[in-house]
Amino acid sequence: MTERPLILVTNDDGITAPGIRALIDVMSEIGNVVVVAPDKPQSAMGHAITINNTLYLNKVSAEQAVVTEYACSGTPVDCVKMAVVEILHRKPDLCVSGINHGSNSSINVIYSGTMSAAVEAAIEGIPSIGFSLCDYDWNADFTPTKEYIRRIATEVLKNGLPDGVLLNVNFPKLAEDAIQGIKVCRQAKAMWMETFDKRKSPSGREYYWLTGEFVNQDNGEDTDEWALNNGYISVVPVQFDLTAYHAMPQLQNWKL
């Protein structure tokens, strides 16, 4: 690629989140960056889109700024759609989402707004990556992730990705010299065992607060959970084709 690539940056924690600021810093070294991100936190929105409400898009960067930034009132997926159709008027060379404050390994990929933004870009035919750090602290240290993000993004720009595939990249909460390396993994079989904390408001009305425990049911040493628990960065190739091909022969034998 002779000229600097056009890179779309988005997230689900909101345009002011430290994680996206760190990602913008790295991407600005690689290419020309346009940011379209939610104007407020949109965590766990999954692949939601706005269809029964208005959408607002506000440019928040100065005219002379190196990076062009827009805040969108919608979901992370809305941000990607708006970026391609209303701002860029073309497909960028790469879409990166994150850096998420917290893990998006295993089953969390289903709920994640960070990953859903990357999935939407992949649906559009854009090479895309979701980045997450296993640290929910708003003031988390993203410095150890930067060199690895640069390396992974550069490889995707250089080599591309298979059709219909994007990357889910998770970083352990470790100092840079403690990270053991990168492992290409499969998604661990795990789930959330949810409970609802039932409470009462000052007016006496009952309400519920979702809580729960993450349960890893997978002992494999080739999973993202194993990698993260053993000091590795996990890279999982993700596809948005949800067809269970292995189940088709069984269903074809049914008397439907």
Rank of each mutant, 00 (worst) to 15 (best):
M1H: 13
T2H: 10
T2L: 10
I7Y: 02
I7N: 05
V9I: 10
T10F: 02
T10E: 01
G14F: 06
I20L: 07
L23R: 03
M27R: 02
V34Y: 01
V34P: 01
P38V: 03
D39R: 07
K40A: 12
Q42L: 05
Q42H: 06
Q42F: 03
A44D: 15
A48W: 02
I51T: 15
N52K: 14
A62D: 15
Y70I: 01
S73C: 09
C79N: 04
V85Y: 15
E86H: 10
K91R: 11
D93G: 08
C95T: 09
C95R: 02
S97R: 04
I99F: 03
S103Y: 01
S103K: 07
N104Y: 08
S106K: 04
I107R: 01
I107K: 00
N108D: 11
V109Y: 06
V109L: 09
Y111H: 09
S112V: 01
G113Q: 05
G113H: 05
A122D: 04
A122K: 05
I123K: 14
E124P: 08
G125S: 08
I129S: 00
I129C: 04
F131I: 03
Y136A: 12
Y136Q: 13
D137H: 14
W138Q: 12
N139F: 13
D141W: 08
D141T: 12
D141V: 11
D141K: 11
P144H: 02
E147H: 12
A153M: 10
V156Q: 05
L157A: 07
G160Y: 06
P162N: 07
V169S: 05
V169L: 08
P172G: 08
L174H: 06
E176L: 13
G181A: 03
M191H: 10
M191F: 11
M193V: 12
E194G: 00
K198L: 09
K200W: 08
S201P: 03
R205S: 11
R205D: 13
E206L: 01
Y207I: 08
Y208V: 15
Y208S: 11
L210S: 13
T211G: 15
E213N: 15
F214G: 09
V215R: 09
Q217C: 15
D218T: 04
T223Q: 01
D224H: 06
E225L: 13
N229C: 14
G231F: 06
Y232K: 08
I233G: 00
I233N: 02
S234D: 08
V235C: 09
D241F: 09
H246S: 11
N253R: 10
N253C: 09
